[in-house]
Design a protein around this nucleic acid. Structure first.
Lengths: 229, 229
DNA sequence: CTTTGTGAAATTATTCACAGCA
DNA sequence: TGCTGTGAATAATTTCACAAAG
């Protein structure tokens, strides 16, 4: 059974053992909004302001932030800079993560061109494919490598993230190879659930699912946003 | 306040007024698994099998499916074909949806090349951009149009989905133009919450958020999947 | 014996509401 | 006054567990 509901924080985090899953998902959203505001020169923010920007209640914001320390100031709000530093440290984006892309097709190509990865601390260090016609070709500055080169590269470059950008039929096999090579995190773009036997972390991004959710809402005439929860 | 928690089904759906939001999100996953199985020649499936494939309990699957009719057979399971037809009808993917892409950059390009959209019943009928240097150029068979042409095209082609594939700074303005043009659904790829004043439906896909979730889990040593709920 | 459909119970998440600080 | 932090209350969701059906 997949671990659900709670996420355990490592020891060095002061007296905050567990974070509910929905909270964990909102952390990125808080960070995004805070980064945008500090860029505008703002230095503090209240739970109400932050909630408003994200479509959440102020109480929700406070509860979420309370999970990892209390450094809001009554009557003032939260110091944006500190909050950003803390969120980055919790989310792990204060470190640099080496990633590999498997699959030199459309999605792989788009990911390599997508500058935002670098800015968030993720560095794509290699691209793999198992199609002999693609291996050796150049993709946005990377020579496409054969899958057989994966384990050595993962070891040498300390790769932590494997991005699965292959068709659904090949996705499970690729995931198995990534796991075998020792990659602890998988970002899955294939429209297929990956069975990772609880050995690694997986997050999936599926356009078709997103599109279906949207079609569903539109056909119901439902209005509002289904993305911030 | 954004509508949350319930989604109201239209009249012709027999005695099933409301579906909880988490259920609505799982519908796409059920459909995907069922389509894969019918392709293998299977004709029925039990809640236990379906749950196992998706990392859910059998009770959860049964509760979800019970929301839109009861056509499982005790001792047998659910007829896959019927279930697929019903899910497609509920999700709206038994119709064809016309979509436009706004933003002729990397993401826009990748979406046009991504064949899966067509297969799911979504047809991209036009691509827009506001950069004069891009307008008029060809993108995967589409001549990139100026934003000023949006309202007329939306009307003529009965466009139901607008795909926002522009940088965060431009996203809100693009959303406003789509809403003004009468597009009822927005798929947002910009890393920014869109304020749509409850006028339309929005679903967001954010790579950075996904990556941060993954980094978070990996740094916690959390294993398992955070995508099927 | 298997599997559905579903109330009832348990769990999880959100909102309320207010004491206390700036 | 404005705002945080947090128990208590409420609401939403999942799981249990079992009667009824194939």
């Amino acid at each position: 059974m997949t671990n659900r509901g709670w996420v355990t924080l490592p020891r060095p985090m002061p007296h905050h053992g567990k974070i509910p899953r929905p909270t964990a998902k909102r952390l990125s959203l808080y960070l995004r909004e805070l980064e945008s505001r500090i860029g505008q020169g703002e230095t503090t923010i209240s739970s109400k302001q932050l909630g408003q920007a994200l479509g959440l209640t102020d109480a929700q914001v406070r509860k979420d932030l309370a999970f990892f320390g209390q450094f809001g100031h009554p009557g003032i709000g939260y110091p944006i800079g500190e909050l950003i530093a803390r969120l980055r440290s919790i989310l792990g984006t204060d470190r640099e993560w080496h990633a590999v892309v498997v699959g030199a097709g459309n999605i792989g190509r788009a990911l390599l061109a997508y500058g935002r990865f670098q800015r968030k601390g993720f560095r794509i260090v290699a691209v793999f494919d198992d199609n002999p016609r693609v291996i050796g070709s150049d993709l946005a500055g990377h020579t496409v490598l054969a899958m057989s080169a994966l384990p050595a590269l993962v070891r040498q470059q300390d790769v932590k993230i494997g991005i699965v950008a292959v068709p659904a039929e090949a996705a499970q096999a690729v995931a198995d190879q990534l796991i075998a090579a020792g990659v602890p995190g998988i970002l899955n773009f294939a429209p297929k659930r990956l069975d990772v036997k609880n050995a690694v972390s997986v997050v999936s991004v599926d356009f078709s699912v997103a599109l279906e959710q949207l079609a569903f809402q539109v056909s119901l005439g439902f209005t509002g946003s289904l993305d911030e929860e």
